[in-house]
Design a protein around this nucleic acid. Structure first.
Lengths: 142, 142
DNA sequence: TTATTAAATGATAACATTTTTCATATAGAG
DNA sequence: CTCTATATGAAAAATGTTATCATTTAATAA
């Protein structure tokens, strides 16, 4: 579903540097965790995984926020209300989450522009964007 | 936008009782707060408003959760990450939130069924539902 | 390479949010 | 009116997030 090729570490470093941020071993470690877990992780999960490497939770929070700001991570809602963060390879996209196994896939060809125009006309709002999340059952859990 | 008539207190009481829950003065007070604030409130705002009436925050939490489970409240994201709860009078609907003044309106004629079918075909998922939130500028803030 | 410096780190504290506990009160049913 | 399971409120506990600050270090430029 509209997947662009994997991001190289050097590319990611450039993305960080472009905005005046530094690409540290800790940040690389956080990114690797997400790359290795396509269905996403909560902040607390990442914190636990990286604790043995002595990477503090403050760093995890800061890095996830940075990756999110750069558009490399998207979040979806957990049933618990917690946020789970998932790697996003396409630009703007929506998440589709399995209610049972929490598998998450990205779908980016969902065109809501027609809907946005309709809503704009009906409400008088200037619609700037949206957050859309689908949930259901993945093929394995169906 | 597809608004059904206001919910009477007796009706709300029946809804509570139907699920084995009790309709208490505290729960009525919480509901009244939401009815009087169409743009919604965060939990902490409700807590502050009801503090003089000596309604504990635990009760606020419990009541909001119940109202949410019954479908009478929907939440939208605050820029802070906090949830703001808004009365929902139509069955399924989407929220449209102003980035500046936080005005929130509901729009329920957004038909995503076509999109859901498309996604189902592309991913193999059984799509059960979605959460959709629009944001932008309300007419006053444009 | 090396020096410089602004940003990042991690430990801790501070803060905020949410849930639990439990003795007491009370809504709803009979 | 009585009875009982549920709700309440106050406080504590648990959980989640942000801020602080001395120290380290990535990136830049000499």
């Amino acid at each position: 579903m509209n997947t662009i090729e994997a991001l190289s570490m050097e590319e990611l470093r450039r993305q960080f540097n472009r905005t005046g941020l530094r690409f540290t071993p800790q940040r690389e470690a956080v990114w690797r965790i997400f790359e290795g877990n396509p269905d996403g992780l909560t902040i607390s999960q990442v914190t636990v995984i990286l604790a043995p490497q002595k990477i503090g939770q403050a760093t995890v929070y800061r890095t996830i926020r940075a990756l999110q700001d750069m558009g490399y991570l998207k979040w979806v809602h957990e049933q618990t209300g917690e946020h789970r963060f998932v790697v996003s390879r396409s630009g703007h996209s929506h998440m589709l989450v399995c209610r049972v196994c929490s598998k998450a896939v990205e779908c980016s060809d969902c065109d809501l522009s027609v809907l946005e125009k309709l809503i704009a006309r009906q409400t008088g709002f200037t619609v700037e964007g949206h957050h859309l999340e689908f949930f259901g059952l993945c093929p394995d859990c169906s």
